[in-house]
Design a protein around this nucleic acid. Structure first.
Lengths: 304, 304
DNA sequence: GCCATTGATACCCTGGTGGTATGAGTTCGG
DNA sequence: CCGAACTCATACCACCAGGGTATCAATGGC
C-alpha cells in the first residue's frame, strides 16, 4: 500500500469526473488526456479500498461512497484554496478587509457601515470584492473575501451570519407593460414572463451551485438587467433598496403580494478570528439596528 | 508561476515545521531528510508569494502570515483526512454508525440511548470508537467517527452539539486520605495534589491540543487511574455518573464546592447529513430528556 | 576565536505523473 | 446480424518533481 493519504490533485480529478460523469469531458476540463485521468481515479479507488464509480462503456454513475466523497472532497478543496488565499492576503504588504457583495445589493447600508467600521480601532482598510448573485458564500469559503453581505436564504455551510434588514421585494416592469396598470401583483400574474436568468419565472434565485459560466447569463450586472427590463424582454425581482437605486423613467416597480420579503445578512467564515471581521460585523449590526430604530420611530409617530 | 494550487504534502510539511519550529526535528518527524524539507517550504513560500518563517540559523519563528496559514492548514488537512475516512466508511460492505466516546464517560445513558436508537427506522448497526479525554471532537473532524459523546467545554470547531445532562463533579480520594474526614471540599483544599495527567492540580482538563503521545499519560484508562487514586498517589475529578461506576472500597468520593458541574453533550460534524446520525442525536436527546424528567419528578415529589 | 549547531546549496536518482497508441466492450443504426 | 461509433481500460514511454547524500555557510556559545 502506497496509500497513506489523499492528495489535492486526486480530489480535483475526482470532483471533475463526478461532476461530468464522463472521463473524456472531465479530462478535457482538467486540460489533460483521458488515460492518465482514468488511472488516477482507479488509484484513488485502490487507496480508499472503495468503488467510487460504476462504469459501463456507455455510462458512468456515482456509487453511494462516491456521493459521500463528492460532498467531502468539495469542502476539503474549499478549505485548501481558502488556506492559500488567506495566507496570501495575510502576508501582503497592505492587509485589507475584503468585503464580498453583489454590486448595489447592500440595502443602502454600505456607506454607513463603512463609515462606522472605519471609526473602529480594530479596522483595516477595506476592499470590495464584487461578485454575482449567490457567489458571496463561496468567496468566503474559498478565502477570497473575509466578510460578506448576502441575501437570505444562502448556502451557509461553514459560515456564521447575522441578519441586518428585511425589506419587501418589488418586481421591475417596463412602463409599457400592461401589468403596470395594477398597483399590486401576485406571482400568478407574472407566470410565463422571462427572468434575466434565462429560465421562465418560477420565482426565487437559482439554488443550484452556480458553476455555470457567466456566458449563460445574458446580463451579469444590474445596469444591463434593467436595460433589458426597460425593453420589456424580461421582468426582474429586486429588493426595495435596489429598486430605489434605479429610478428609471422606463421602469415601474410594483409590490408582489405573495413573494416573501428579502433579508440582507452579514456573513463570515465560522473560524474567522480576525478583529477586523469582528469590527465590521459590529458596525453592520449597529447601522442596521439604527436604521431599524429610525424606521420604527417613523411608524410609531407619523406626525413628529 | 507554476503555482496553481497547494498540495496536501506541502501543508503537512508546513504544519510539521510550524509546530516544531525546527527543520531538523520536523524532518525527523516526517521521516525524511532536512534538505528536501527546507526546499519544499521555500517552494511553498514562493507559490504563495509570502514569507512564512523568519529563519536564523539558530531560531525559526512563524510570521503573521504563517500563523494564519497554520490555522487554515490544520483545518484543511482535517477536511482531507475526513473525506478519506468517510468515503472508506461509506464504501464498506457493512456501513456502521461510529460513536466516539471516552470509555465510561456517558453519564450512564449509553445503553438506553443505543436501545432507543436501535428502534429507530433510520438506524445503522453501531460501533464504539473509544478515545482519550478530549479526543472525540478531533475524531469527528477527521471522519473517524460519525457522532460522539463529549464533555463540555470542548473544541467545537466545525461541530454542532446538543447538551444532554449536567451533573456535579466529585473528587476521588484514597480512603486513607485525611481529607476524607470532611464531607465537602473546595479546590483550595486540593491545591498541590497531583492529578493523573502529571501536572499539579490547577483544575479542569488539559485544554491544549492533545498531540502528546499516550506515553506522557501515566494512566490512559480509568481503571488504571483509579488504581493510582487507591494508592493515594493522585486525586482525580470525575462526574458523578463515572464515580457511581467505580464504587471501590479503597476510594472515597467527595463533592467539590467550587468546581462547575460537568455537562455531557452529543456532538456531530456540522455538515453531517446522514439519517443515522440524526437518529442517534434524536435518541440521545430523548433519553436525556426522559432522565431529566425522572430526576425532576423525584425532586418535586419526595414522598410519592 | 574555535566549535557545535542548523539551515541552505549542489547534485544525483528514482518513481510518479502525464502523453500516445491501441484494445475491448457496448450501443445503435441499417 | 453486422459494423460503426463511442468510451473506458491497458501498454508503453518520457520527463521532471521530490527525496537522498554530501557539503557549505552563518550564527551563537564557550
Amino acid at each position: 500500500m502506497s496509500s497513506g493519504d489523499l492528495e489535492v490533485r486526486q480530489l480535483r480529478y475526482f470532483v471533475a469526473v463526478a461532476e461530468e460523469l464522463h472521463f473524456g469531458r472531465a479530462a478535457a476540463r482538467l486540460g489533460m488526456a483521458q488515460p492518465p485521468l482514468s488511472r488516477s481515479i482507479r488509484e484513488l479507488e485502490r487507496q480508499l479500498g472503495v468503488t467510487l464509480f460504476e462504469r459501463t462503456t456507455r455510462q458512468v454513475r456515482l456509487t453511494a461512497a462516491g456521493e459521500v466523497l463528492l460532498r467531502d472532497a468539495r469542502t476539503a478543496l474549499e478549505a485548501v484554496t481558502a488556506a492559500a488565499h488567506r495566507a496570501r492576503q495575510a502576508g501582503s504588504a497592505s492587509p485589507r478587509l475584503r468585503i464580498a457583495l453583489k454590486a448595489d445589493v447592500d440595502g443602502g447600508l454600505l456607506p454607513q457601515i463603512l463609515h462606522t467600521y472605519g471609526a473602529d480601532g480594530a479596522s483595516l482598510p477595506s476592499e470590495l470584492v464584487l461578485g454575482g448573485f449567490g457567489e458571496q458564500p463561496q468567496a468566503l469559503r474559498d478565502g477570497i473575501a473575509d466578510v460578506g453581505l448576502v441575501l437570505c436564504p444562502f448556502d451557509g455551510r461553514g459560515l456564521d451570519s447575522e441578519p441586518l434588514l428585511t425589506e419587501p421585494v418589488l418586481v421591475a416592469l417596463a412602463t409599457a407593460d400592461p401589468l403596470t396598470a395594477r398597483t399590486r401583483l401576485s406571482l400568478a400574474d407574472l407566470a410565463g414572463r422571462k427572468l434575466p436568468g434565462g429560465s421562465p419565472a418560477s420565482h426565487g434565485r437559482p439554488v443550484e451551485r452556480p458553476s455555470r459560466t457567466e456566458a449563460e447569463w445574458p446580463a451579469s450586472n444590474l445596469s444591463e438587467i434593467f436595460s433589458l427590463v426597460e425593453t420589456g424582454s424580461v421582468v426582474f425581482f429586486a429588493p426595495a433598496s435596489v429598486a430605489r437605486r434605479y429610478p428609471r423613467p422606463g421602469i415601474a416597480y410594483r409590490p408582489v403580494s405573495d413573494l416573501p420579503d428579502a433579508t440582507l445578512a452579514v456573513a463570515w467564515p465560522q473560524e474567522a478570528r480576525s478583529p477586523a471581521v469582528a469590527a465590521f460585523v459590529r458596525a453592520a449590526c449597529a447601522v442596521a439596528a439604527a436604521g431599524h430604530a429610525r424606521t420604527e420611530a417613523l411608524l410609531q409617530s407619523p406626525t413628529p
